[in-house]
Amino acid sequence: MARLPEAAWETSLRQDGEVQEGYCVAELTGLNTRDGWPEGMRLTVRRVRPSRRHLKQLTAFEQKTGWRYSVTATNIRHMGHIAGTHQVQFLDALHRGHAEVEDRVRTNKATGLANLPSKSWEKNASWVLTANLAADLDAWLRLLTLHDQADLCDAEPDAMRFRLYHLPARLAHHARRRHLRIERTWPWAQAFTTSWKRINDLTAAT
C-alpha cells in the first residue's frame, strides 16, 4: 500500500451506486502480489479515517498514514457482460454487501442459533428453524414498522428485547374487552404503539 500513488485511490461507492464520501478504494493486484499468486485473483484495498474505537487497533503503518485499511482478495474479475463490473469500486461494493450476510449470521446467533439445546439432530434442526424464524421476524418488524425510529431501526437483538419485546405493561380486562396498559414512563412506549398500529395497517397477503 505504501507504493500506491495518491492518484490510484478512487472514491468508494455505496450499494445503490451513490458516492460514499470519505472512503477510498484502490487496486493492489500486481503491487503486493508475488510469484505464485493464483491466476485471475485480484487484490483490492479500502481506506477510511479511523474512528475513536479503532485507534488502539491500528498498525504502525496505519498510525503513520492516518488511515485504516482493509484488503480484499477476490477471483471476481467481472460479471458476464455487465459494463463496469470490472472496476474496483464495483468489486468493493459487492464484497461489502457480503459482509451484511455475515452480520445476519451474527444476529441470528443472538436469537438462539448459537445455543443448540439437544444431542438430537431432529430437535436441533427444529431449534435452528425456530431461531431463524425469530431473526426474520425481528428484521421484518424493524424494516416495516421501525424504519424511522433512529434507535430501533438497526438495533441489535439484545437491544430489541430490552426496549420493545420485554415491555413493561399489564393486560387488563374491562367490559369484555382487553386493554394493554403500557407504563407511560417507558422511553419506547410510543415506538411500541406506532409499531403495533403499522402492523395492523399492513395489507393482508393474498
Score class of each variant (00 low, 15 high):
Pro38Gln: 01
Pro38Gly: 02
Thr145Gly: 04
Val45Asp: 01
Arg198Tyr: 04
Leu164Gly: 00
Ala26Val: 06
Ala159Lys: 08
Arg104His: 14
Lys56Ala: 15
Lys64Tyr: 07
Ala60Val: 08
Asp158Trp: 09
Trp37Pro: 10
Arg106Asp: 15
Trp67Tyr: 13
Val88Asn: 02
His147Phe: 12
His81Asp: 15
Asp92Leu: 04
Gly112Ala: 01
Arg68His: 13
Arg198Lys: 11
Trp140Pro: 00
Ser12Arg: 03
Ala93Val: 05
Met41Gly: 03
Val45Ser: 02
Phe90Leu: 03
Leu116His: 02
Arg170Leu: 15
Asp151Val: 00
Val101Phe: 14
Leu143Phe: 15
Arg47Phe: 13
Asn124Met: 06
Thr194Asp: 02
Ile82Asp: 10
Trp196Lys: 00
Arg163Glu: 04
Gly36Ser: 12
Pro50His: 05
Arg96Asp: 13
His166Arg: 14
Asp148Ser: 11
Gly22Pro: 09
Gln20Trp: 15
Arg161Thr: 10
Leu13Ala: 02
Ala191Gln: 09
Arg177Met: 13
Asn115Ile: 06
Ala150Val: 09
Thr33His: 03
Ala150Tyr: 03
Ala159Asp: 12
Asn124Cys: 14
Arg184Trp: 09
Cys153Ile: 05
Leu202Asn: 05
Arg181Ser: 09
Tyr23Gly: 00
Thr193Pro: 08
Thr72Ala: 05
Val88Arg: 02
